[in-house]
Design a binder for these strands. Sequence first.
DNA 1: TCTGGGGTCCTAGGACCC
DNA 2: TCTGGGGTCCTAGGACCC
Length: 421
Amino acid sequence: MLYALVDCNNFYVSCERVFDPRLLGIPVIVLSNNDGCVVARSNEAKRLGIKMGIPVFQAQRIIDANQVRVLSSNYALYGDMSRRVMLALQEFSSHVEIYSVDEAFLGLEDSPRAGDLESFGRELKTSIYRQTGIPVSVGIAETKTLAKLANYIAKESARAGGVLDLSNSPHRDVALERTPVEEVWGIGRQSAKLLKAHHIDTALKFRDSDADWVERHLTISGRHVLQELRGIPSIKFLATAPVRKSLTVSRSFGTKIEELEDMRSAVGQFITRAGEKLRRHGLSASILTVFVATNRFAKETPQYSNSVTVELSTPTDSTSELLKHGLSAVESIFREHYSYKKAGVTLTGLVLSAGLNNRLFDDAQWKRSQELAKTVDRLNSLFGQDLVHFGVVRRRKRWISKSEQRSPRYTTCWDELMTVP
DNA sequence: TCTGGGGTCCTAGGACCC
DNA sequence: TCTGGGGTCCTAGGACCC
């Protein structure tokens, strides 16, 4: 089995460019929720030295001096473009692991093109671009970690031109040598720091380190990374998505929350979103956690954060049941005289709803509430989020996240379709 | 002034049991 | 005063990923 890692280039920026070609060739960045941090950069923005993940105010000087275009994130658009890319990838392999919104591993076991992987990669790149407008890079190798590394070089090297096949390649050691150890998939800041302290600063030196030493210092995960660099598959390929284990909806607030009623409204909103996600995935939750927090960066103001976990008597996907428990949970941890900056809801103990046939006590009511939810979901997806909602979320949303430069939801919202003047 | 959101896995240590 | 040994399960926190 060989693996191809297909990664969309500067994904969020590329999505924006599909619908606004004026953004081509100029520095563009996309901000996180609440317009907080830089989460995507065009190559031009990268070259200006704008770092990934920094709060935008730290880059303000560069932005002003170079007329960098700054956009709020538009997750409805990116999610839909992602779906299109993943669909187009199915043509190239029947084994696709969707790894993230902008990345997928392809298993090439029975690829008819196994003899000529580089042209396979180029064809794929061309086809995805033609079908979706999104530029991708392709890395091919014997393990997922090596495919990731091939992809890293494919992006970085002008000669590779976005596609690199490292399988059976005489250039493999050279590729490993020119890859800094912190760029290896699975080696983060802490591990890189430790490795560098032992003079292991490239992927090649890491690959040739002692496996037992690595396991002692970086746990079993580090050993797996090492083996993968040696060409021994040690990280599972998941062609069918496993049932997820948790689901979170949380937000930072655009303005601080100080009243319980506003917090109930916000958490009610998060629970509503979480319930929709549950039903969309055909899941039910048996454990619900609510958390609240003040602004951890504002060290001079009083700090408070807390969470509470509720075990539900039976798994549910009903928004009203989740609300009942979630709202009393938030009341139990809410303290007066703090300025809250963030809150959220996490659902765990997830099971497939299809496996839950009957309830012992309130079966009839449960089935009615499921019908209701189905209808509400349908109405909201047709006519807009929260057309139909529970009263608790209605309070004026003073806390709503900032999103001042969001592009239209061209592909998912009737009111925001692209128009040609 | 301004600092995202959503996941997974691993380990150590405590609780508990026999 | 002396204070076993071994197993399982759970959880919090850390590290990593995008």
